[in-house]
Design a protein around this nucleic acid. Structure first.
Lengths: 215, 215
DNA sequence: TAGATTGTTAATCGATTAACAATC
DNA sequence: TAGATTGTTAATCGATTAACAATC
């Protein structure tokens, strides 16, 4: 769709724009200028305009941006106009938390299957989806259309599973295991490394303790 | 400790260095050069050396870096040589997942309390910690030393809770609610926005569908 | 000593911000 | 029309990479 070479920094900001515009939409705000939005979001107006103009001119001189239109356009850029079938591999607390997160469905992400090795979990139903034996995973993938696999399994299991998923044709992996998956580049991996996030927090907490760091 | 003005990009990379060095340590690797490490991590050796030299010279010419020493030094930079008391506010699946994640404890993060509004959850014990009524939160904080509050509550509750936590003296918030908390700058907020992570994945999946994007 | 590899400076590259003409 | 605000180019700033002298 877009030309090419959108920088990673820009893509990282898009979901945040989308969220702010969604909030404005809920408050029935009709239009917003880059300046107003920049004040809310604590970024520069210049950055907002530059970011958006990577994808096209969504605004109008002298007016600003129509909130509903811009929200919908960014949604399209993010691929939220499509539906995605998700399976969750690892039905522990984290997997269940993802399965229960209703908002994902609102964005077009549908949980179609949950898998685990634990016999205690197999057969349990979460929001209408039954946890299946992980041994049935290959067959499930071959007979269902699965776009994304969320990996919420221990680190020790992640690498092999990711390799299998790639082999079985999964195109997107949402990886929660604390490891970098080495898989073919046609598979897109998005990592959520909770431990690293917590370490960043502790870094900032402990460097703040230091009085001379203030500015 | 360090001079000042470490860029955010550098800090974001530190936990990943720490993880790779921990893996090497487990494999009993004694020394590693920036070149070898750069190949494993798929970054440039230059970047590794630049990053580390923000904090001091940890290596030795002609030898490289001692894995154990560098691991421990990065741990100190990240504040992992200290212990942190954590409370988790919101004892749903996500809160429970965090409480159950044993690895955090290994890094010095100890879950001291779980809080919820749901009477069904109050009294339940998770890894030896009982879920308490959120009404007792203020008192708990005033009588216990709490460093970090993990916020795993719905978006609608997050803003007020964060304001209260700030008022009650909490210095670090690990925020899982899909919103940007507006709180005094002496409180450090680290966000985990799962919905935004998933949107980045769908962006990459849907832009990959486009053949002309290949290079 | 010779070889290897760091620490660090300089060069390049990319991302952010500023400025302003275009235009609604 | 006059005022406002975009889209876009140019200037600045910061981060990454390259290069190499220092040194183990």
């Amino acid at each position: 769709m877009q030309k090419k070479d959108i920088s990673k920094a820009v893509i990282n900001r898009l979901p945040r724009y989308y969220r702010y515009l969604g909030d404005l939409l809920e408050k029935d705000v009709v239009r917003i200028s880059s300046k107003e939005l920049s004040e809310k979001m604590k970024v520069t107006a210049s950055q907002i305009r530059q970011d958006l103009n990577n994808f096209g001119g969504f605004g109008q001189q002298g007016y600003g941006y129509n909130v509903e239109y811009l929200h919908s356009e960014i949604g399209k850029i993010l691929g939220l106009d499509k539906n995605y079938n998700i399976i969750i591999i690892g039905a522990g607390n984290l997997g269940q938390a993802l399965a229960n997160y209703v908002d994902f469905e609102r964005r077009g992400f549908f949980v179609k299957g949950l898998f685990d090795v634990n016999p205690r979990l197999i057969g349990v139903s979460i929001r209408g989806v039954e946890v299946m034996d992980i041994d049935t995973l290959e067959e499930f993938i071959s007979t269902n259309s699965v776009d994304i696999a969320a990996l919420t399994v221990p680190k020790t299991k992640a690498a092999q599973l990711a390799a299998d998923l790639a082999k079985w044709g999964i195109k997107g992996i949402w990886n929660f295991a604390p490891t970098d998956l080495q898989i073919p580049k046609e598979v897109t991996v998005e990592n959520v490394h909770l431990a690293e996030s917590l370490m960043k927090l502790s870094y900032r907490l402990s460097s703040k303790d230091n009085p001379e760091d203030e500015e």
